[in-house]
């Protein structure tokens, strides 16, 4: 399951490496990670899409919050939110097919930002799924090059990442004891060195 998490981080060298390193060291699965400036020059904002079940998401959030340079963490699990991805895609388009491509781009509220003799460069933004759909539709024309920013997200209404509280864990529901996020296999357990 994909989850979107956003984090305000101190704008200093090494934070991105720290966050990325933490994800790989703990075996969390990043789908996309976007960093950019905010209204406050001291803070950057990361938007991270992770593939995780709820327990892993809980760990991801806590492990992020534990990094000293991470100021606030918020996931959008129980919040209405807006998410956007921006794409530039360069398609093959001969004078014959050009108008078809323009029509498709229009349907997706895309913009034509460059045209050459046999290519056309389209800019589209929107939710990830919309962009995926566009890619599938234009694939037959021939995709020369494609770049996407990855997802950025923001809660609807007055909620903001700054108003996110501290990490107060809630009691788990269900069975008293259960498996870790990923149970090691028997072979892995046996491979555990003696210490």
């Amino acid at each position: 399951m994909k989850h979107v998490i956003t984090a305000l981080v101190m704008n200093e060298p090494g934070v991105l490496a720290h966050v990325a390193g933490m994800f790989s060291a703990r075996g969390f699965n990043i789908d996309s990670l976007v960093v950019g400036r905010t209204e406050d020059p001291n803070l950057s904002r990361m938007t991270i899409v992770v593939i995780a079940d709820e327990r892993t998401l809980d760990q991801v959030r806590k492990q992020l919050a534990k990094i000293v340079a991470v100021v606030k963490v918020r996931d959008f699990k129980d919040l209405p939110f807006v998410s956007r991805d921006l794409m530039l895609v360069k398609l093959s388009a001969t004078p014959r097919t050009r108008s078809e491509v323009i029509e498709l781009a229009d349907l997706f509220r895309g913009r034509i930002v460059d045209v050459s003799h046999n290519t056309i460069l389209v800019e589209v933004s929107g939710e990830e799924g919309k962009l995926d759909a566009f890619v599938e539709l234009v694939r037959p024309y021939g995709i020369r090059e494609l770049a996407r920013t990855g997802v950025i997200a923001m809660a609807r209404g007055a909620e903001s990442v700054r108003s996110a509280g501290g990490e107060e864990p809630r009691p788990a529901t269900g069975k008293a004891v259960s498996a870790a996020p990923r149970q090691p296999t028997q072979a892995e357990l046996e491979a555990t060195p003696p210490g």
């Binding site: 492990q63 864990p169 009691p171």
Partner: peptide, 16 residues
């Protein structure tokens, strides 16, 4: 450390 809680086992009553 909140990240220790429910990391390996599910906890019924967490106190941070």
């Amino acid at each position: 450390d909140p990240s220790s809680i429910s990391k390996n086992v599910r906890v019924d009553v967490p106190v941070v």
